[in-house]
């Protein structure tokens, strides 16, 4: 099937099989390999991306469903600078080890900060509770998100 969508600001037209989910499409058709697959059944959060402004599980959306939609991935958010401060906080706090969960984690964290500028640690933990990280034990991630929220609040 032919689909046309916007990915990281660029218009993309492609011929995809209906069964191809959005992250396979991004990874295999567009070679945007920053979005990862950890379970492909919607539990681990590694495939978290933004579709039409909201975070979604990329493995639980078909590419054909995104026809006409606006997709943003970790590559797009990196290039635009939207989450540069959050990324810097993750690096400074070593809030990633193997880094496999990180793109999805950053997507979820930024989603929280857009909706709740001053989250408590509990709210941060709750919001990222659908994103599995095997390495860090989460505390460094919570710290990095909290730090970014405070920095943004001060910059306001």
């Amino acid at each position: 099937m032919n689909i046309t969508l916007t990915v990281n600001g660029e218009t993309v037209t492609a011929d995809v099989l209906p069964r191809t989910h959005l992250v396979d499409f991004l990874r295999e058709h567009l070679e945007l390999t920053g979005s990862h697959l950890g379970c492909e059944h919607g539990v681990c959060g590694a495939c978290t991306i933004r579709l039409d402004g909201a975070i979604v599980r990329g493995c639980l959306v078909l590419a054909v469903q995104a026809d006409g939609g606006v997709v943003e991935t970790i590559e797009g958010l990196s290039d635009s600078g939207e989450i540069a401060d959050l990324q810097a906080a993750f690096i400074a706090r070593n809030a990633l080890q193997c880094g496999f969960c990180t793109p999805g984690m950053l997507m979820a964290a930024q989603d929280l900060l857009l909706h709740n500028a001053t989250p408590t640690r509990e709210e941060i933990r709750e919001h990222i509770s659908g994103n599995y990280c095997r390495c860090t034990g989460y505390q460094a991630i919570v710290d990095a998100v909290e730090t970014t929220a405070k920095q943004r609040a001060r910059a306001q």
């Binding site: 978290t48 909201a54 599980r57 997507m107 979820a108 989603d111 919001h127 659908g130």
Partner: peptide, 8 residues
């Protein structure tokens, strides 16, 4: 579930 599922 979680925010990324409640969005869909």
């Amino acid at each position: 579930a979680h925010a990324a599922i409640r969005s869909r």
